[in-house]
């Protein structure tokens, strides 16, 4: 690095460059990794001075102001993409998936106070097809079993039954995890499958009793959602 650049690095980190010089130097720095590294190095040393400041007491009003300036849009834009399936799925799934994450966090927080004997590998909040309201929660365990907690009272007409499905991957296709007719918390054990994965689809359809005649969903989808691992 040129001696003149060393001086500029120093003035930049010190914060005493004139505005125009500062903008020029900022551009030069972004184009020159060695210059950038020199700035980062000196800044890391000088920040020991900042670290001597005794933390100020901060009131919650400051956080509330910050929170009011976060637009919801950027939060949902930034939601992590699901590793599987996502690309091929329609727009609606993206909205549902965001809601699943939000709801999943709330649900987990609520369940922390209870002592759960076993931990689910994945949790999916299944959303109502019509209004995207949560309709059921699925906890999927490593032993091919799930615990299903209905959040709404599904109307099941005479001669029909509720059937729970998952889509481990596109190649395997939908797999039935079991049927039920009276909405309450139930445990179901499906066939032997790979361990439930993040982004795996779960859904409940309305089928003719005693279950789909074809082994695949035939009736209307009532609720569906994607699995996420608990933190």
């Amino acid at each position: 690095m040129m001696p003149e650049q060393t001086e500029q690095v120093g003035l930049y980190v010190l914060g005493t460059m004139e505005d125009a010089d500062r903008a020029d130097f900022g551009r030069a720095m972004r184009a020159d990794p060695a210059l950038q590294a020199a700035v980062d190095r000196l800044a890391a040393h000088l920040q020991h001075l900042d670290d001597t400041a005794a933390p100020a007491p901060v009131n919650s009003a400051l956080w509330q102001t910050i929170e009011s300036k976060l637009d919801g849009a950027s939060a949902s834009e930034n939601v992590v993409a699901f590793p599987t399936h996502r690309r091929a799925l329609p727009q609606w799934y993206g909205i549902a998936a965001s809601a699943v994450i939000a709801l999943g966090i709330g649900y987990l927080a609520g369940s922390m106070t209870t002592t759960a004997p076993r931990e689910p590998l994945m949790i999916a909040v299944l959303l109502n097809e019509g209004d995207a309201q949560p309709g059921a929660i699925v906890e999927a365990f490593a032993d091919d079993s799930i615990r299903l907690v209905p959040l709404e009272d599904f109307a099941v007409p005479e001669g029909r039954i509720l059937q729970v499905w998952t889509l481990p991957d596109a190649g395997t296709g939908p797999v039935s995890l079991g049927t039920f007719s009276d909405p309450h918390t139930i445990n179901l054990t499906g066939p032997e499958l790979p361990e439930p994965a993040s982004g795996q689809l779960y859904e409940i359809t309305l089928e003719p009793a005693p279950g789909s005649p074809t082994g695949r969903p035939t009736g209307p989808i009532l609720v569906k959602g994607f699995a996420r691992p608990p933190v």
């Binding site: 060393t6 001086e7 690095v9 120093g10």
Partner: peptide
């Protein structure tokens, strides 16, 4: 200041 920031980095 110019001289000091150079000496500091050295």
């Amino acid at each position: 200041i110019r001289r000091s920031v150079v000496s500091l980095q050295e």
